[in-house]
Design a protein around this nucleic acid. Structure first.
Length: 279
DNA sequence: ATCCGATGTCAAT
DNA sequence: TTGACCTCGGATC
């Protein structure tokens, strides 16, 4: 289940496993049979990620993948087992195989089509050449809640429901605050933090956002295991005590997604509601 | 056996 | 704002 860190990690794994050598490509499920036939026997050249979009370069074109809400790739070493479940695309070489299930997008596209995708995506904290200025240009002019803006891939690419909740918590910002009521300093700090957190997410393969001093162990409480694998402050912790202040974590549905925050730690000062800068 | 939700996005209303 | 879609696993009956 994928935010940008998963996709960037997958790009590295696909390149490492397959670049430079021919692969056997198949679609055991059948829904990508025509595309797999075109790729079968070709050698992937490289992989790229932008936000939640993954691109694998083949001589036949770009394989464009988007995992959507529940797409997943599983890895293994030959011998390749008989397909279990709905495998849209299986890539295999002598040493590894990758099974793709449940993607929202699995298609072959041209370089021009790929370019169009890049153009509609905002800057990605995981792309070293990107910076937050293009995002700030939109955020600083928007009345939309910052929680909504952070999930808008045209504004910033790769952030999903976990990173948005967690980064807003780490900066003490009320998720409902309009984008244009953020200060430039606050945005700069958020962007820098996302660069750090998401790169750490790529490295670790999970989302960890809790500072060491707030880990339950450090606070004298029993360790816990979040079911998505990482240590977080508020994501999917509704009703549980905030790791910092003990208030119950709150949740509301916003644009059909659950939004989590701590109303005590993320309370804007009255002045911010009128546009003043938080110190 | 069936329901429901999920780290996502789009189109239709 | 809602519904549809991509698939699976855990909860519930």
């Amino acid at each position: 289940m994928p935010e940008g860190h998963v996709i960037h990690r997958l790009a590295r794994e696909y390149a490492q496993a397959f670049a430079g050598n021919p692969v056997a490509a198949s679609s055991p499920q059948g829904r990508f049979a025509d595309g797999a036939a075109l790729l079968d026997g070709q050698a992937p050249e490289r992989a790229e990620a932008h936000g939640k979009h993954l691109f694998l370069r083949f001589p036949a074109g770009w394989l464009h993948l988007h995992l959507g809400l529940y797409g997943v790739v599983t890895w293994g070493h030959p011998p390749v087992p008989a397909p279990i479940g709905m495998i849209r695309l299986r890539l295999v070489n002598g040493v590894r195989y990758a099974d793709l299930r449940g993607p929202a997008v699995c298609e072959l596209i041209t370089s021009a089509e790929k370019q169009a995708i890049h153009e509609r995506l905002g800057p990605d904290p995981l792309r070293p050449a990107d910076d937050g200025e293009r995002a700030w240009a939109k955020i600083s002019r928007s009345r939309m809640p910052i929680a909504t803006l952070l999930m808008d891939q045209k504004v910033i690419a790769g952030v999903g429901n976990v990173y948005r909740a967690e980064v807003l918590f780490r900066h003490g910002i009320d998720p409902r605050r309009p984008g244009r009521v953020l200060s430039g300093e606050e945005w700069k700090a958020i962007w820098t933090d996302l660069v750090d957190l998401m790169n750490e997410g790529v490295r670790a393969g999970r989302i960890d956002t809790v500072r060491p001093e707030h880990l339950p162990e450090a606070m004298g409480r029993a360790p816990r295991a979040d079911d998505h694998g990482g240590e977080v402050y508020v994501y999917r912790r509704s009703g549980m005590p905030c790791l910092v202040c003990g208030e119950p974590v709150r949740t509301v549905e916003l644009a059909a997604r659950n939004l989590f925050w701590c109303a005590a730690c993320q309370r804007d000062q009255a002045a911010t509601a009128t546009g003043a800068t938080r110190s």
